[in-house]
Amino acid sequence: MNVTLLKSQSKQIENTQTTHIEKQFVYKTTDLNLWYGSTHALKNINLDLHENEVTAIIGPSGCGKSTYIKTLNRMIEMVPGVKTSGEIQYRGRNILDKSYGVEDLRTQVGMVFQKPNPFPKSIYENIAYGPKIHGIKNKKVLDEIVEKSLRGAAIWDEVKDRLKENAYGLSGGQQQRLCIARCLAIEPDVILMDEPTSALDPISTLKVEELIQELKNDFSIIIVTHNMQQAARISDRTAFFLSGEVVEYRDTTTIFSNPTDKRTEDYISGRFG
């Protein structure tokens, strides 16, 4: 059984069904509003995210970056009292529609969190968990997936001799790359990352950044970051959020060298936030 093949076949099927929607977008967000109870956290967001690119989301604390990225895989539903309006099309289908199976969505859209959150299991089991719950039981296939994912996350050489050890024995930076590997194991289409390096030291950060650069060949990546240099270094496009709104969204070089909006300029030059 070849997982990659199965996966790409199913993607092809999906793509042929949705060719009339522009193929280069993974996500099309239309008039998205979100409320936590009475707090209006996202206001009329319109944002189209591109395939095989790194999209950075920047903005001051509390502007709704995490909220937005968590709606993209509907993790936001875990917060009680959240209401949304508008539409988020993922590959042509509205994911906010209740009929969209949330497990299906999350199988396609992986997520890496701010704090590394490996399972309290062995390194091997951490990676094999995703494929296992989706029904892949063959030991040999699992072995291959584990190696491939760990290689993909540039951590194979560091852990190949200790796959049976508990993941909590790894350093913070290694744990974060392990979490990325865990995400790669089910070969998602999109990877969401919410400040994936904010808990890491500079060297681990660099490693994760290099990794992201490589991953974008195979995946579409959306990353929230507080670090402007990081956004400039690794992203193709940048969206600037402020108080729940998208102020500016362009390709990264332009937004950093020549921002149109005064507020963007103030933010990236460090005048507030």
Partner: peptide, 26 residues
């Protein structure tokens, strides 16, 4: 921790799969 549950949910695990295969062993 809640973050461990989120890790499982983010992989497309259902509530039952998360409970049986992650929370109980932990």
């Amino acid at each position: 921790p809640r973050s461990i549950r989120e890790g499982a949910f983010a992989l497309g695990a259902t509530k039952l799969e998360t409970t049986i295969k992650v929370i109980l062993p932990a």
